[in-house]
């Protein structure tokens, strides 16, 4: 018995030693396999390995509640561990507020914004609405008659619709928002003419827009985009800019050197050719932003999001 205990103890010691020696990353995707965060995490894994930045990278999925379950678990388990990373994004900002999450983005160490996508408002090709002005007029005449298809209530699409209505001088609580659980389902409803307009990230609609089945009324970017032939919301007189970004963050309680080392690795990854290839393949926009600039951006967005969620009554 004594031998068994000693052997076990030795084994444990050895195990911990060998674990500490490996220079690797474990990336948490706080979502189920297949979604945007999961794809971001797995692409990071691929590029970090391919570029030789890390030798062993593992992806862990912790799905649930807009990423807040994964975030809570991450803060709890990973504190002080420089090998742990978490992928997240703008959706988390809203989810933290609507789910009254005890853990927020202040509890992690944001490293960098990696990719981003802008929201677009689309209509079927045969729709009477031709411009953003038409939509604003219809909205002002009878907000209930304009039905919006997008993702779940309180998500980026809903927030953007609320911001749009508010900026157009319409009470955001009157937006007739129809929530769908997946991009495909909402797209089907828009193509089938079941709803008036659709709102989501451009990637959801890109191939239909290129095929001429959908028309983009406006984009939520601050300047016109190369890939989308449509005016910005601002050009249409609606002062709203929304970017649905994805970021990578590290564990809380790290030293400045540790943060610097991780930032260097992520920057090397973001600038590598294989990362650019991934972005091109997936149709993701490179919106890399690190350091203080990113932290400041994050602060501004959290405030704006909280305000609109209050306006539409999702947050007390």
């Amino acid at each position: 018995m004594k031998h068994v205990i000693m052997a076990t103890a030795a084994a444990c010691a050895l195990a911990w030693a060998s674990q500490a020696a490996a220079a690797d990353y474990t990336i948490m995707a706080p979502a189920a396999p297949g979604g945007g965060w999961d794809q971001t995490a797995r692409s990071m894994q691929e590029v970090l390995l391919a570029e030789g930045i890390a030798e062993d990278v593992q992806v862990v999925n912790v799905p649930g509640a807009g990423g807040t379950i994964g975030l809570a678990q991450f803060v709890n388990e990973a504190a002080g561990d420089p090998s742990r990373l978490i992928v997240g994004g703008y959706v988390m900002v809203g989810a933290i507020l609507t789910n009254a999450s005890p853990v927020t983005l202040d509890d992690v160490t944001p490293i960098a914004r990696l990719t981003g996508e802008y929201e677009v408002i689309v209509v079927p090709a045969e729709s009477e609405l031709q411009t953003l002005a038409d939509l604003v007029a219809a909205l002002q005449a009878d907000p209930g008659a304009v039905s919006w298809a997008g993702g779940s209530a309180g998500g980026t699409d809903h927030i953007t619709a609320g911001l749009f209505a508010k900026a157009a001088g319409v009470d955001p609580t009157l937006v007739n928002y129809i929530a769908y659980s997946g991009g495909g389902e909402a797209l089907a409803a828009i193509l089938g003419g079941q709803v008036t307009v659709g709102i989501s990230g451009y990637g959801e609609f890109q191939s239909q827009v290129e095929a001429g089945q959908l028309r983009v009324l406006g984009v939520s970017s601050d300047e016109r985009l190369e890939i989308v032939d449509a005016p910005t919301f601002r050009e249409g007189g609606v002062d709203v800019v929304v970017q649905n970004w994805r970021m990578v963050a590290a564990a809380p309680d790290l030293s400045a050197e540790q943060v610097a080392a991780i930032t260097a690795d992520i920057e090397a990854m973001a600038q590598s050719e294989s990362w650019q290839q991934v972005l091109a393949n997936k149709g993701w926009q490179d919106t890399y932003l690190a350091g203080d600039a990113f932290a400041e951006q994050l602060r501004v967005e959290i405030e704006a999001t909280e305000a609109i969620l209050r306006d539409v009554g999702l947050v007390e």
Binding site: A11, A15, S18, Q19, Q58, V60
Partner: peptide
């Protein structure tokens, strides 16, 4: 697949 590792797996 992420299955938790313990002493045996790490050994």
């Amino acid at each position: 697949l992420s299955l938790p590792a313990g002493p045996l797996e790490r050994l």
